[in-house]
Simulated assay, not measured.
Amino acid sequence: MSYDKVKQATQLIIGMKQTLKAVEQGMVKEVFVAKDADPKVTGKILQLCREKEVPVEVVDSMRQLGKACGIEVGAATAAILINE
């Protein structure tokens, strides 16, 4: 289950802007995108991940992704860093 991967990660990036920046810099091992996030927000990250060949896992909800990240609010995206 992908939420377990997120919970166990020690080097986690949460949020769209930080995830985008980390993927652009080639620092990301895997990206998680919430299915219920705004496609205008997630489209850019999905496109970039395809270009950079970074694996993407779509998860059910922003709320659950945020919870897995250990935050009280929803998260549209999260990423696990390569040097994890």
Rank of each mutant, 00 (worst) to 15 (best):
S2A: 15
D36L: 10
G15N: 06
A79P: 07
V56R: 06
K40T: 11
V31D: 01
L81G: 05
A68E: 08
K44F: 12
V31R: 01
V28I: 10
E84M: 09
D60Y: 10
K5Y: 12
K7C: 07
A75R: 03
D38T: 01
F32H: 10
A79C: 09
V28W: 03
A75V: 04
M16H: 14
G70V: 02
D60M: 09
E51D: 15
T19G: 01
A68T: 06
Q47Y: 13
V28T: 09
V56C: 02
K7E: 14
K35S: 14
T19C: 12
A9W: 00
K44P: 02
I80E: 13
A75P: 06
Y3I: 03
C49E: 08
L48W: 01
V33T: 03
L20H: 05
Q47N: 12
T77Y: 08
V73G: 10
V28S: 03
K21E: 05
K5E: 15
Y3A: 01
I14C: 00
D36G: 12
K44Y: 12
Q11D: 15
A22R: 02
A76H: 06
Q64M: 13
L81M: 15
L81F: 00
V58A: 07
T19Y: 02
D38F: 04
A78M: 09
K40G: 11
S61R: 10
V6G: 02
Q18L: 14
G74V: 09
P39W: 11
K35A: 15
A68I: 03
A75S: 14
Q11E: 15
T42A: 06
K17I: 03
I80Q: 08
R50T: 12
A76Y: 00
L48C: 05
V59F: 06
E30F: 02
K7Q: 09
K21N: 13
M1Q: 14
V6P: 01
V73L: 12
R50N: 13
K67G: 09
D60N: 14
A34N: 08
G15P: 04
Q64L: 13
I82F: 02
M16E: 13
A68S: 11
K52N: 06
P39H: 13
